[in-house]
């Protein structure tokens, strides 16, 4: 009797290890079936942030909500850990990454990009009154967001010797505020939106320290059929002037060549 129970228990444990079911459905179909488009973001003004009522707003958030509307589904915006963005996408936890994401070649090997909708560059942010110059950034303590374009710039363009990789771009700014780092390398879009205001009033963008030309795109799973719908949507929103109006509202530089 005991042996039989033991055998059954062993069998059950082994079986649970091999459960598998079919998830091979087209993205557009599964989004429509679920009735919602799940968009992964981080808090990143002016692209995605919460307004005073706790509602998502920003250049990307508004576009994402409009895109969900055209699909006839709800838009669910969830905060993810930026380090895990590829895993979030590939494990079907989210459908899109729409968070002012720099479309780098490296990332392009793992996920697909929509047509690029905005332009970006990296800038260095220092404390007001800092004696640091653009040439000195190389030897300073640099704070960057782990896995971001700023981190690549710090390593490959600036060739920094002392790089602190933190969890988010705002963390990089906090490092500079707290004095634990001398300079933060972050997106110009975000720097223009927050530096010199509010809690970041004591920071400024370093003159002459601007690196690289980058483009922003929405991230999709490899081979996702959402790409065709999304590209058509982005181009249509540019053509009817909606995106230009949003770009002025949030101070974002559109990638007009790609959107034509």
């Amino acid at each position: 009797m005991k042996k039989i129970i033991s055998l059954i228990l062993t069998a059950v444990i082994l079986c649970t290890l091999f459960i598998s079911c079919d998830t091979a459905k087209s993205d557009v179909q599964s989004v429509k079936d679920a009735g919602k488009l799940v968009v992964g973001v981080t808090v990143y003004p002016p692209m995605d942030y919460l307004d005073d009522n706790g509602e998502w707003t920003g250049f990307d958030a508004e576009l994402a909500q409009q895109f969900a509307e055209t699909l006839g589904v709800n838009c669910q915006i969830v905060i993810i850990k930026w380090d895990n963005k590829v895993a979030e996408l590939n494990s079907n936890q989210i459908d899109l990454i729409w968070n002012g994401m720099t479309a780098s070649d490296e990332l392009g090997e793992k996920i697909d990009f929509s047509v690029s909708y905005a332009k970006n560059a990296q800038v260095a942010v220092v404390k007001k009154g800092s004696t640091l110059t653009a040439d000195g950034v190389k030897d300073a303590k640099i704070a960057v967001e782990n896995g971001s374009a700023g981190a690549t710039v710090a390593e490959e363009t600036v060739k920094g010797t002392n790089i602190n990789k933190v969890g988010a771009m705002v963390d990089a700014l906090n490092e500079v505020l707290a004095g634990t780092s001398d300079v933060a390398i972050i997106d110009i879009t975000m720097a223009q939106s927050v530096v010199g205001k509010g809690v970041y009033a004591d920071l400024e963008i370093l003159d002459g320290a601007s690196y690289g030309d980058e483009i922003f795109a929405v991230g999709l799973r490899k081979g996702s059929d959402l790409k065709a719908e999304l590209d058509a949507f982005l181009k249509a929103k540019y053509a009817d002037g909606t995106m230009t109006a949003l770009a002025e509202k949030y101070n974002v530089g559109l990638n007009t060549d790609a959107l034509k």
């Binding site: 459960i19 598998s20 079911c21 998830t23 091979a24 679920a34 895990n84 895993a87 979030e88 590939n90 494990s91 079907n92 936890q93």
Partner: peptide, 18 residues
């Protein structure tokens, strides 16, 4: 924690039910 959340989806086994 990481493996239990992401692996089922990455290996196309199942997605955690909402």
């Amino acid at each position: 924690v990481f493996a239990i959340f992401y692996l089922p989806g990455l290996l196309k086994l199942f997605v955690w039910p909402q």
